[in-house]
């Protein structure tokens, strides 16, 4: 009975999170165009509904009803598998993010708003992240187009390069909170947020997050001026939609991970002064506010900084971020073991 209600709780949570993720990702596309318009002194989408608020729905409908096209000589199964994997892996990340402290009581045990509190949560995120590249690789290769292939190859080498620095940059956090569990990492930030303890780690992580989500200035895999559309050149209709959409889902997931690892997750100043129920509610809202800020930050950067050249990208990844991250690990390792 208790097990059944726990399972129902988790399933409901997964369903709600799924809907919220898709909703935020859909409105990110609208938000992105509005932010771009604001930065370039334009108006942006304003035709569909009041303030253009129905634009994402209009776009979605358009995507679904567009003609499907598959290039000759492409691989039918893999051509469909590509965008599916991209979307699947994008949606998997947020499963380990804790959205609230342990508060909801089922059968005498307290549960947090978190789908899976596995004890290697942070590694799970990296695992899913490293799988994300399959969607792009398979999609790019199966299109039978040299631009797609080049885009896919760029994406994979970029992701592999930045994953290393990203993994190293969070080692100080793991050392500090003495756990790989996401809930424990958030709890360890009850007093001080990690950003104040590991500012350099945050910087490295942030840069790598941009590279991992293929956002400007690291959007070389879909660099229009050189590669037409990169790995999704040959895609049409909702398959293209999945690729574009998975980028926004990824952005949401990375923002959630950044907020959780460095900005205290659901913690906010004065949390312990409020009664538990209110604190939980505000905590969830605060976490979403942090996430939305970071989504905005992603867009802000996109319309501010131009794209890197490919050799600059590799130089930054391997010769700047990697050594920095290694130094960071050594320094914080020394601090934690001797002080």
């Amino acid at each position: 009975m208790i097990l059944a209600s726990v399972i129902t709780f988790k399933l409901a949570l997964a369903a709600i999170l799924f809907v919220i993720t898709l909703g935020i990702a859909a409105y990110s596309t609208y938000f992105e165009r509005k932010v771009a318009a604001f930065m370039q002194d334009r108006i942006g989408p304003n035709r569909a509904g009041p303030l253009g608020l129905l634009q994402p729905i209009a776009d979605g409908v358009k995507m679904i009803f567009k003609e499907e096209h598959r290039p000759t000589g492409s691989n039918r199964i893999l051509f469909i598998l590509g965008p599916s994997i991209a979307m699947l892996t994008a949606l998997m990340t947020s499963a380990v993010i804790p959205w609230s402290p342990k508060f909801f009581e089922i059968g005498g045990q307290k549960y947090a708003l978190q789908i899976a509190d596995i004890n290697v949560g942070i590694l799970y995120i990296f695992g899913v992240l490293s799988l994300g590249v399959y969607g792009i690789l398979i999609g790019g290769w199966s299109s039978n187009n040299k631009y797609s292939l080049l885009g896919a190859v760029r994406a994979s080498s970029q992701m592999i390069s930045y994953e290393l620095a990203m993994g190293l940059s969070i080692i100080p956090i793991i050392l500090g909170s003495e756990s790989l569990q996401m809930s424990a990492i958030v709890e360890s930030q009850h007093e001080v947020w990690n950003i104040f303890k590991y500012p350099l780690g945050f910087l490295i992580f942030l840069i790598c997050a941009f590279a991992e989500t293929n956002r400007t200035p690291f959007d070389l895999p879909e660099c229009e001026t050189e590669l037409v559309g990169g790995y999704h050149t040959e895609y049409t209709s909702m398959k293209l939609g999945f690729f574009l959409f998975s980028e926004y889902v990824n952005m949401f997931a990375s923002s959630a991970v950044i907020s959780t690892l460095f900005f205290g997750g659901y913690h906010f100043p004065g949390m312990s002064l409020l009664p538990a129920g209110v604190a939980v509610l505000i905590g969830v809202a605060v976490l979403f506010a942090k996430i939305i800020f970071f989504i905005f930050f992603f867009m802000w950067i996109r319309w501010t900084i131009p794209r890197f050249r490919y050799d600059q990208l590799m130089h930054l990844g391997w010769q700047v971020l990697m050594p920095l991250a290694i130094i960071l690990v050594v320094v914080y390792g020394a601090i934690f073991s001797f002080i």
């Binding site: 590249v133 290769w141 994953e163």
Partner: peptide, 16 residues
Amino acid sequence: IVYAGAIMVLFLFVVM
């Protein structure tokens, strides 16, 4: 992470 995420991606890379 190691096998599916890194090694096989490199394999795929070479095959491509």
